[in-house]
């Protein structure tokens, strides 16, 4: 059992917890909070997929010559993808919150039970 599989399990559990929140909560802000928990879980899974045991960060320095890099560094590709995913995640959250403000402006509430058109 190494760090990578623990992180991957934790990521899967975070996604599940967030999904449960999205499906069961009735306040829109809480639904958006659950979305951000799912986001964090997905990032954790992706970074865990690039992790390799007993390897170092992908930065070449005095202690790490460029020729040794392939056998000493973790996978840099998932890290680069997660980097952009985090920034876009913030954009998506902000957009959801702007929609929530609009809904609140119109209906004076964010509780789904009290909004006729959002009930299911």
């Amino acid at each position: 059992m190494n760090i990578g599989s623990i992180a991957m399990g934790a990521g899967f559990l975070l996604v599940l917890i967030g999904l449960w929140g999205i499906l069961t909560r009735t306040h829109i802000i809480q639904i958006i909070v659950s979305f951000s928990v799912v986001d964090t879980g997905v990032h954790l899974i992706m970074v865990a997929a690039g992790y390799m045991h007993q390897r170092t960060a992908p930065i070449i320095s005095e202690g790490l010559a460029a020729s040794d890099a392939p056998s000493l560094v973790v996978d840099p590709l998932p890290q680069a993808l997660v980097l952009t995913a985090i920034v876009i995640g913030l954009g998506v959250t902000a957009l959801m919150l702007a929609f929530a403000l609009r809904i609140h402006e119109k209906n004076d509430t964010l509780e789904i039970k009290n909004i006729e058109r959002l009930r299911w």
Partner: peptide
């Protein structure tokens, strides 16, 4: 099913091996 890989996969090992030569950047990410 997930197993921690022991070797870098194709494109990743290319990035690790030739980034310094190709671009001169110390930070691979």
């Amino acid at each position: 099913e997930y197993e921690t890989p022991l070797e870098l996969s194709g494109s990743a090992s290319y990035y690790a091996a030739s980034t310094a030569e190709d671009t001169g950047s110390a930070n691979l990410v």
